Amino acid sequence: MLTFQQQFSQAWRKLFVQFSPEYWSLQQHEQCLAELLQAYQEPQRAYHQVQHIVECLALFEKVQSQIEDGLALQLAIFFHDVVYQPRSASNEQDSAMWMRQQLAGALPQTQLEKIVTWILATQQHATTPESDLVYLLDIDLAILGSSAVRFAEYQQQIRQEYVWVDELIYQEKRTQVLRQFYLAQPLYQTRYFQQHYEQQAKLNLLQALG
């Protein structure tokens, strides 16, 4: 079975054919992959790492027939957490800037700016009428509707990322976040995720809230 790193690399390399060769060389593509992998394996990460991106890409495969701009959505997945510092409030902005710098000239400006907007939207997860963006936001939150075992692992991974926070304060803040998700009606914005993940997500969240 392929490791998460191998799956990540394989998915990235598949995207190369969708770039214009005169603006984006194989060498640039491989260099970007190396930098992405290095970023997602930084020591402060427990959840926001290669596994999360691979899980998001697997979900993209399930809904790609519903997506208008598949390249943009996959790039948004690859880059949306590329900068992640648990103490920072600007991770999404920094990730979007990192993506823009890496892919400058490789894609049309309008497409780049769209991906920037989508990455920024993963900060608030607000309701949106934009047809592709709703899938990105649901994919990013699909972990909440994963199996009970994976959800428990996710909870531990998030705690590990905030290991420096006092336990009582962490539990209070984490409960606020999970309650907000639990009370969202519906939690997911697309029919696919509502049908396949909503019920399990609410069960997981209810159990976590005790």
Rank of each mutant, 00 (worst) to 15 (best):
P129F: 11
A126L: 10
S88Y: 13
I77Y: 09
L133F: 09
F79R: 01
G105Y: 06
T128F: 08
M99R: 01
S131E: 13
T128V: 06
I77W: 13
F78Q: 00
A106S: 08
W118F: 10
M97E: 15
M99L: 13
P108V: 07
Q123R: 13
H125S: 01
R100K: 14
A76R: 08
D132T: 00
H125K: 04
T122I: 00
M97F: 15
T122A: 01
P129R: 04
A96P: 05
Q74T: 02
N91F: 09
D94G: 07
A96R: 07
L103W: 13
T110Y: 11
Q102C: 12
Q85C: 10
M97N: 12
S95G: 04
Q111W: 05
L103H: 02
R87K: 14
V83Y: 15
R100H: 15
T127K: 13
Q85N: 14
L112M: 15
Q101W: 11
H80N: 04
Q109T: 14
T110V: 14
A121I: 02
P108L: 13
E113A: 03
L120W: 07
W118E: 00
T122F: 04
A126Q: 10
F79E: 04
F78D: 03
T110M: 08
L107C: 06
W118T: 01
Q123F: 10
P108N: 04
P108F: 06
A106T: 05
L120Y: 13
Q102N: 05
I119H: 05
A76I: 05
L75M: 08
A96W: 15
A104R: 11
D132K: 01
Q101I: 07
Y84R: 06
Q93H: 11
S95A: 08
Q123W: 11
G105I: 04
L75W: 09
D81N: 04
L120A: 02
Q85D: 15
R100W: 14
V134Q: 14
Q74R: 12
T110C: 07
Q109E: 13
I115K: 02
V83Q: 12
T127E: 11
D132P: 06
A96N: 06
A126H: 14
E92F: 08
I119T: 00
Q111I: 02
I77S: 01
S131Y: 10
K114G: 01
S131R: 12
W118D: 01
Y84S: 03
Q123N: 04
A89H: 13
W98F: 15
H125I: 00
A104L: 09
I119N: 00
S131T: 12
M97G: 04
T110R: 09
L120S: 00
S90K: 11
K114H: 10
I77E: 05
L75V: 05
D132F: 07
D81P: 00
P86C: 08
K114M: 12
R87S: 15
E113G: 00
A96D: 05
